[in-house]
Amino acid sequence: MLSHISITCFAASYLVAWLLEITRLLFRSGVRGALMLGFASAGLVAHSLFLGYRALHAPGPPLSSSYDWYLLAAWMLAVAFLYLAWLYPRSGVGLFLWPLTLGLIVAAAFFADPEPIAPEPASQIWGAAHGIALLLGDVAVMFGFIGGLMYLVQAWRLKRHVLRDGGPRLPSLEWLERVNSRVVFVSAALVSVGFAAGIVLNRVGGRTLMPWTDPVVWSSGLMLAWLLAAAAFNVVYRPARHGRKVAYLTVASFGFLLLSLAVLLGLDTRHGGQKAERQRAAAEEGAR
């Protein structure tokens, strides 16, 4: 039965939850909150079962393809939605969060490779540390992006004195600022750990599997450099801890994340999994 759960099941539930969230801009309803939580929860259950099934039936290490990682990142955002919607029922956080979640699911369904990236892992421990830390770091960056966007929208509304003219009741600037500030450090730390684990993984066994020129390596390195600079900026320059600057930092971090995701999906890289390997081999065969 679990094998019958498809991406469409949970994507459709999330889509309905998002559409319900959008209706918040149009009219009030006493049952919308419950419906939204219901659809999001149903989607999350299906999503969890789908990932669980893939993990149990994976030929190699569980959930080790880029396809799985996109879906795991989407799963974490869906969990974050439920948590925030429960704590702040009228915050409208879903307006910002669902597009990103659905975007990750669409990227997984249409662009990502379902084959494991490293079917012959030099070290599964380092491989897991590399994958998990980068995944969490990326989710933190996405979360920061959502928080940054919400901050900018809320600040814009307050500056123009139009806070309650329709639209969702966003969290306070103070709360968003605190979240964004923490996200800068958390994402920098997680991506650093993930990157360092990747370097170690690459050296295990005394051979270099992944060159520094690999597009995913340099684009991730670029994102890491930015995150470290943002964290340092936050520590050294006190005004960067307040107001829009911290929101700009988190929004810009998402730009670097998008770049590395675009590189992963679009360019020829050894992070592309077996499909990329097969394509490369076929191309070399054709050239001969």
Partner: peptide, 10 residues
Amino acid sequence: GDFARGIFER
């Protein structure tokens, strides 16, 4: 209630 609460959490 409307505006200061939009800025400050506490």
